[in-house]
Computed example of a mutant assay.
Amino acid sequence: MKQMRAVLCGYYGKGNGGDEALLASLLQLLPSHVTPLVLSGNPAQTKQDYGVEACDRMSIGAVLQALRRSDAFIWGGGSLMQDATSALNPFYYGGLMKLAQWFGLKTIAWGQGIGPLHRPTTRWLARQTFSKCTAVSVRDRASAALLSRWNIPFTLAPDPVWALQPEPVPGLWNFPAPRVAVSLRTHPQLTPTRLEALTRALVSFQTATQAFVLLIPFQPAQDMAIAQQIHAQLPNVSKILTLSNPQQLMGVFNGVEMAIAMRLHALIMAAAAGCRCFALSYDPKVTQLMEEIQLPGWTLDQMPTDSTQISQIWLEQYANGDPLLNEQIHSLVDRALMHQQVLATALTPR
Rank of each mutant, 00 (worst) to 15 (best):
residue 34 V to W: 12
residue 19 D to E: 09
residue 14 K to S: 09
residue 30 L to D: 15
residue 21 A to M: 06
residue 2 K to T: 05
residue 2 K to S: 05
residue 11 Y to N: 04
residue 31 P to H: 15
residue 18 G to V: 00
residue 34 V to R: 00
residue 16 N to V: 13
residue 31 P to D: 14
residue 35 T to E: 15
residue 23 L to A: 09
residue 25 S to K: 05
residue 36 P to C: 12
residue 14 K to F: 11
residue 18 G to K: 00
residue 18 G to D: 05
residue 17 G to C: 01
residue 15 G to L: 08
residue 35 T to R: 14
residue 12 Y to E: 04
residue 29 L to G: 12
residue 26 L to R: 02
residue 4 M to R: 13
residue 15 G to V: 11
residue 31 P to W: 13
residue 6 A to I: 05
residue 20 E to C: 06
residue 29 L to E: 15
residue 6 A to M: 05
residue 13 G to E: 03
residue 23 L to Q: 12
residue 11 Y to P: 03
residue 14 K to G: 04
residue 6 A to L: 05
residue 34 V to L: 04
residue 17 G to Y: 03
residue 11 Y to C: 08
residue 15 G to A: 07
residue 27 L to W: 15
residue 23 L to V: 10
residue 7 V to D: 00
residue 17 G to A: 15
residue 30 L to T: 13
residue 8 L to G: 00
residue 7 V to R: 00
residue 21 A to I: 06
residue 24 A to R: 02
residue 21 A to C: 11
residue 5 R to C: 04
residue 27 L to A: 03
residue 13 G to Q: 02
residue 24 A to D: 06
residue 22 L to E: 12
residue 28 Q to P: 00
residue 29 L to P: 06
residue 13 G to M: 03
residue 14 K to R: 07
residue 30 L to C: 14
residue 20 E to T: 11
residue 28 Q to T: 07
residue 35 T to I: 14
residue 5 R to P: 03
residue 23 L to I: 14
residue 6 A to D: 10
residue 8 L to S: 01
residue 33 H to C: 09
residue 34 V to H: 06
